[in-house]
Design a protein around this nucleic acid. Structure first.
Length: 607
DNA sequence: GCCGTTTTCGGCCCGACTGTTTTCAGTCG
């Protein structure tokens, strides 16, 4: 499992950009209050932790900063608002007087005195060097103090001149490794979309299952937690001792490079640049190892801490008391020993799941089989690839009872969007099909463009003939937060508006979310009796997890839709379910788990 | 720097692999 504290990428509007210089400068522009997001503060705390670690500070002090950074990233509340309301920040776990003051300073001034002081000792750029695998704080410190290396470019030059291997503690191999890592860093080995990773992980797992001596094979790590992107693939294998499984694994045809290889643990890079870590344990350690290898890191730390308080030591081999193994054969046994019920992998982010488990508040998470319909699909009539009838049959094969046909509207010309006349024709077609198809009901819908001014791209007379109206933003992504939010709120005020599709507009790894106040949108949905979509397309997975959780808390139903453009796209629903589970959603929190007769009244606006 | 069913001081999650060592530090997961 990748070990950097995660969550930024999942945080939607809490974008992953750090606290950039330009942002700091513009924080207090004349008369304009620039927002500071939790992610920005978290980035500062993370940088302080990096710098302190390079300066060889007490590791627990470093950990306190990292921990606080993590807390802010995962916090469902806006810290800026908390400061403005004079809330007591020390009530947050891991935040004491000192960190509370630093956070307050950041919110109020956009600066952190301590970070400024650290920058006088160490240039900000050295923390970049930590991103090179093989370079940790100690080596970065040596590189800076001994060779005055502070940037990637300087590191590159030192490698070329073979100056690295002259340093004590460094050798020829280390230098070569750094050279290698630098080349890869330049090639930008990013994270893999979950759906892409699945295409490599699942065949590899199947191949491993056929090896002699292998008993169980599970893809663990962030993949098992259904994160929208994964940095690597973690595979747990149980096998009898002395089986040659690791040796055999390293002969897998797709491996481009072996990073490390031991009897119980190996890391390789596949030809597509995806890193795979494999761990082999004995069957009696299966549960403890699976728990350990599923992560997240912060969840594991919290669980070990709980165990420790009860005199237990938890590692990947089992749960131990006074040196004697107590259990660990199943994940359930690990949780049981620390006094908790089983926590589903998707919740294991140290985001309140442990407290919820302790208090018996864990939701019974939604499953794929709970879905009764899909409220957002396309056919050949706009930019889909298959006929209405083919889409209906495919939906039926996926166990769905109803399917809303929601073509694009005319504004989206590139997608051959429908004008009122064409839409009227499709409405008639759907009526005919519904008489013909016995096992599934087609609903009449549209994915109508929300125009820049918040109006909908089709006239009311035609919208009024539909079962549901799915609104979506497909352009003018660059509006200010205020204007973008107003645009969407206005659309939701429309009496025919039912459902907001892909609410943040992001494309994972390709396009950031547009800047929008999602909390206001969620509250508007509650007020107006409409819904938010969780788009199951693995490139979108939008609504993101923390906003699913907030929608649930605010009492707004989420609709998990495939946005299918072909009969194959219904398979994507499983990714939507993964994200929904990460967002704590249960069956009752999801609109399209309702059978058709229960759904229909919910689609009719009463306000 | 944080925190308290052992505690306001003394702890703080745990182990594998590599390279440069000659018993272990550094890094990573």
């Amino acid at each position: 499992m990748e070990e950097s504290y995660e969550g930024l990428a999942d945080a939607g509007a809490l974008t992953s950009r750090g606290l950039q210089e330009s942002f700091l400068c513009s924080y207090f522009m004349e008369g304009v209050f620039m927002p500071i997001h939790n992610a920005d503060i978290a980035a500062v705390l993370e940088e302080i932790a990096d710098l302190l670690e390079i300066e060889n500070a007490n590791i627990f002090r470093v950990r306190a900063y990292r921990n606080a950074s993590h807390i802010l990233q995962e916090l469902g509340k806006d810290v800026r608002t908390m400061v403005e309301q004079a809330d007591d920040l020390t009530k947050l776990p891991g935040i004491g007087d000192d960190l509370a003051h630093k956070i307050q300073e950041l919110v109020e001034t956009g600066h952190c005195t301590m970070l400024d002081k650290l920058h006088q000792q160490l240039p900000a750029t050295v923390t970049e060097l930590l991103k090179i695998p093989g370079l940790g704080p100690k080596r970065v410190r040596a590189l800076y103090h001994e060779l005055d290396i502070r940037t990637m470019e300087q590191l590159q030059r030192a490698v070329r001149n073979h100056r690295i291997q002259t340093l004590p503690g460094f050798g020829e191999k280390t230098e070569m490794r750094i050279a290698d890592a630098l080349a890869k860093h330049a090639a930008d080995m990013g994270r893999f979309n979950l759906a892409v990773a699945a295409q490599y992980a699942e065949p590899l797992a199947s191949w491993l299952r056929k090896l002699p001596g292998v008993q169980q094979v599970v893809v663990a790590g962030s993949y098992r937690r259904a994160r929208e992107t994964v940095g690597d693939i973690d595979i747990l294998i149980t096998a009898a001792p002395n089986s040659q499984v690791m040796k055999r694994f390293c002969s897998y045809d797709e491996i481009a490079e072996t990073l490390s290889q031991g009897p119980t643990r190996s890391s390789v890079v596949l030809k597509n640049k995806l890193q795979v870590d494999v761990r082999v344990v004995r069957p009696e350690s299966y549960g403890a190892a699976l728990h350990y290898f599923t992560g997240s890191k912060s969840h594991n730390i919290a669980i070990r801490r709980l165990g420790r308080a009860q005199g237990l030591k938890i590692n990947e081999y089992g749960v131990f008391k006074a040196g004697a193994r107590v259990n660990g054969e199943t994940e359930e046994s690990v949780y049981q020993l620390v006094g908790l019920p089983f926590i589903p992998p998707e919740l294991r982010e140290d985001r309140g799941e442990i407290e919820a488990a302790r208090d018996g508040r864990l939701p019974r998470l939604i499953e794929l089989s709970d879905l009764k319909g899909d409220l957002h699909v396309h056919s050949k009539a706009s930019d889909g690839h298959d006929t209405l009838e083919a889409m209906a049959q495919a939906a039926r094969q996926h166990g769905l009872e109803y399917l809303a046909i929601t073509e694009h509207s005319s504004r989206l010309a590139v997608a051959r969007g429908l004008d009122p006349v064409k839409l009227a024709k499709q409405i008639d077609m759907i009526d005919c099909l519904n008489e013909k198809l016995p096992d599934i009901t087609l609903l009449k819908g549209i994915e109508v463009d929300i125009l820049k001014n918040g109006k909908l791209d089709l006239p009311d007379w035609i919208l009024g003939k539909l079962d549901l109206v799915v609104g979506a933003v497909h352009g003018s992504f660059g509006l200010s937060r205020a204007r973008q939010t107003e645009r969407i709120l206005r659309a939701m005020d429309h009496p025919h508006f039912t459902l907001l599709a892909h609410p943040s507009g992001r494309l994972i790894g390709k396009r950031e979310s547009y800047d929008v106040d999602m909390l206001r949108i969620i509250r508007k949905a509650k007020e107006r009796g409409c819904y938010l979509e969780l788009n199951a397309n693995p490139k979108r997975l939008d609504l993101v997890d923390i906003y699913c959780q907030i929608a649930k808390d605010e009492g707004v139903l989420v609709s998990i839709d495939s946005d299918a453009h072909s009969v194959f796209d219904f398979d994507n629903l499983r990714f939507g379910i993964g994200q929904a589970r990460r967002g704590w959603l249960a069956r009752q929190d999801v609109l399209n788990t309702r059978p058709l007769e229960a759904l229909r009244p919910l689609l009719r606006r009463t306000m």
